[in-house]
Each structure stands twice: as C-alpha cells, then as structure tokens.
Write a protein that binds this DNA or RNA. Structure first.
Lengths: 198, 198
DNA sequence: TAGGGCATGTAATTCGTTACATGATTGC
DNA sequence: GCAATCATGTAACGAATTACATGCCCTA
C-alpha cells in the first residue's frame, strides 16, 4: 500500500497528473520511493474508484491530460496512515549474498564489485549533497510549493523534516562508500600478505 | 532471481533440506536475504527441474525430509552469477515518505516514529555485533562449515568476507541509529524554540 | 518528415506475503 | 494425551518489472 500513500502525500501539496507524478517518482520523490508509470496510472484509477482522489480532464479535448486532486476522504486516510506504526520490511541485498560467496573467486572480481558499489553510492551521495544544498538555500521548487501550501508556523518543521530525510539518504550513501573503501583496503593488505607468504 | 542464487550459495557449502534452508533464511542468511518457506519449497522444485540441484528422500519412509544437493550445472550457473555486474534496485522506504509529510502532525508523533526507528536498528545492531564477535572468535557454526568445505589457502578470504558483509550491516544499523538520534535532538531544539516564541 | 517529449494506458510475468492445510515425531 | 517442533506443501493475492501499444504536439 506504500505507493498509494506516497501518491496521496504528494497530492497533499499540489494536484498533479499521472505523467507529472511519474516524473517526480522517477526523480526527487524517487530517492525515497521509486515507481514507474505502469504502476502509477492504474493505482490512481483505483484510488479514484475508492474516493481518495478525484480527476478531471484538462482542456476541451476528450482525451489527454488528467489532473488528480486529493479528496477529504483521501486526506483523512493519509493522516490515519501518518500516525500508524511502521513495519520494517525484511532485508534483501543481493550484493551481500554475492560478497559472502565470492571467496573462491579471484580478488580482482571482489575488487570490481566493491569499486562498483562505492561508485554507485558516491554518485547517489553527490546527488543528495546537491539536493540538500537546494533545500537549505530554499531553491528547491517542491519545498517552496510545500511551504506555500502549509500554515506558516510549520515552516521550520517542513524544511527541517525534508532536510532530515535527505540527510538520512546522504548518511546511508556515505556509509556505503566508506564501507566499500574499507573493504578494498582490507582486500589489498590481505592479498599482499598472501603473495608475500609464497 | 536472487533467491535462487542465495539458495545455490548456501548449497555450495553444504547440502540441506527445505526446512533447514527456511530456518537459515529466517535467521543468519536472513540478515542478507530473507525468504519464507512458501517461497523456498517451490523454488527448490523449480531448480531441480532445471538441473541446478538434485534431491533425495532421507530415511526409508516415502514421505518426509528431502535433502537438496547442488549439481555441477548449479555450481557453474552460480559462478557465472558471482562475476556478473550488480544491478542496484530502486529505493523504496515507506518511513521516509512518512517523515517528509509528517510536518502537520504533532511533534510527539514525529518523535514516536524516530524513536521506533532508532530502537529497531539498535536491536539489529546488537545482533550484528554479537554475530561479528562469533565470526571473529571462530565460534560461528556456518563459518566453520564453510572453512571446512573450501581450500585452506582461502581461509582468510572466507572469514574476511563474511566479517566484511556483517560489518556492512552493522554500519548501516549504526548509521540509522545515529541519524534518528540526530533527528530527535533537532526536534527537541526546534519545538523548544517554537514554544519560547509564544 | 522524423525524432523527441508529452501523455496515457494494458498485458504478461515474476516476486513476495499471508493464509490455509497436513502429517510425523518428540518431550513433558 | 497435548503441545511444540519438524517437515512439506498449495492457493490467493498484491506489488513490481518489462514489454507492448497508441496518439498528440513541437521543432530541427
């Protein structure tokens, strides 16, 4: 059900089309919850059928852009979800499995995987750092819309929470980079020792 | 396909029944890749049909414990997978979504979620620390079996990689705990300031 | 006029969860 | 005799990926 709540959350700030949501859930929202258009369009339809959102066609033409707006029912359902306890999903990390069983492969293969891991998370870290800068400097468009849509006394919370969330992602990425670097370092000393012994 | 490779990986160390695998993938292996019995049993059957594993019934009775053993085909397929490049799955974190939209809720609700987050990851961290201790002291049973099943010259790699993998999980958990604590601290100062202003 | 972005959908398949279901053995 | 654990399965459903499919509008 998380996609549903992610969509509702977005719609509490502004109304949007499926296309727009698809863009957001592939980019900024996507750093927290990724979703593709083939998942979003049917979900919006279901949500409309359940009265959580309403939609109307923009322009005069019969076919084309459909804009979704959250209803009071939708807001109520979203608020209910907000206070609900989290359930922490089980861990699933294919790369960890690989690493654990890589002990019979050439060290170069291990190094390849660790370097790719580090590079991947370094790229993410760069993006998060950039976004955090935009949040703090107030140039992030979605944040400005959120601030405008919410009562001014909650401005500090709005900004602070968005920053905290992104900060969390940045910390995660940094942790992965540092871990991979530690792994690469260990691998070097480990294989050097090994060759010295022969 | 990751469950398949996780199962194959386990079977490169020792043969096992579906039940045994279910236990392992709910515990130690489960820290990297969780799976339930309703997923494991059918997958083993499919893998047998594809020649990656073979099975035989233990004991004389017709029904009962079935032990699975990896085949050469299975080993080949697993080795092929080991060197393959990783693909990094999209991010999906329902708790982050919640946090970002929690700005209209009472600070107590935010604090509740952050505390639960910290506690959850602290519990994980305790488990990982304990397991790491067992790895380093050589009392971890699965590691001993792995060492016995692999050539002695790779002993350092076997132990080192398992420790590195767990160390990665521990780092992740520690990062989450620290992040949640930072969030709670910020929340306190933020809401104190707020009330002082009135 | 061809290619790219806008805009919306569906279908097939795979992956994972939850619930249902059964029977044997072991220890209190 | 009863409860727990061992041991194996299936069915229904939901979540997510990949591929297929269509049509508009703009601009190079």
């Amino acid at each position: 059900m998380s996609l549903r709540y992610a969509l509702l959350g977005f719609l509490t700030t502004e109304q949007a089309s499926g296309y727009r949501l698809t863009q957001e859930f592939g980019e900024s929202m996507g750093w927290f919850w990724y979703a593709s258009h083939s998942q979003i369009y049917p979900e919006l339809r279901r949500m409309e059928a359940e009265g959580l959102v309403t939609s109307e066609l923009d322009g005069d033409d019969g076919r084309g852009k459909r804009t979704y707006t959250i209803t009071d029912t939708g807001r109520g359902e979203f608020d209910r979800w907000l206070v609900e306890d989290a359930d922490y999903p089980p861990q699933r990390d294919a790369e960890r499995i690989r690493l654990v069983f890589l002990d019979q492969q050439h060290p170069d293969v291990i190094a390849k995987h660790l370097r790719a891991h580090r590079d991947h998370h370094q790229r993410l870290l760069d993006i998060y750092a950039d976004q955090l800068e935009q949040i703090r400097s107030g140039t992030f468009p979605r944040l400005r819309k959120r601030l405008a849509s919410q009562p001014p006394e909650s401005a500090e919370l709005v900004t602070g929470l968005k920053a905290l969330a992104l900060e969390g992602n940045a910390r995660r990425a940094r942790t992965e980079v540092e871990w991979a670097d530690q792994g690469l370092l260990w691998l070097t000393t480990c294989t050097t020792d090994e060759s010295r012994r022969h």
